[in-house]
């Protein structure tokens, strides 16, 4: 069953990761400053970024991508198109 962005945001980080594992598709990843590994997923027709803290060794944030500008920050290997 497809969830909306709003419904997806009702869940905590742990559950969001479970949903991404179940229904999402990994697209690409990038390393940001401060040792964060940020991965991009597509799920239910929208993009989601998950932020992994390499020091704490855990995912600290999973949020839908709200702006297409964010996609330009990823390596160009993937053809990314803003979904909605």
């Amino acid at each position: 069953m497809v969830l909306t962005k709003e419904e997806f945001c009702l869940f905590n980080v742990k559950s969001k990761l479970k949903l991404m594992e179940k229904d999402g598709c990994f697209l690409t990843t990038k390393v940001s400053q401060n040792n964060y590994l940020i991965s991009l997923y597509e799920i239910y027709g929208f993009y989601v970024e998950s932020t992994y803290d390499c020091v704490q060794m855990k995912t600290v944030r999973v949020e839908p991508v709200l702006s297409s500008n964010v996609l330009e920050l990823y390596p160009p290997a993937k053809q990314l198109q803003f979904l909605n």
Binding site: E7, F11, K14, S15
Partner: peptide
């Protein structure tokens, strides 16, 4: 408790959507 509540939340949401 939080794990349980997340499962409850997911179930409630699905029941509503279906």
């Amino acid at each position: 408790q939080e794990d349980l509540q997340e499962n409850i939340k997911y179930t409630t949401l699905l029941l509503k959507k279906y």
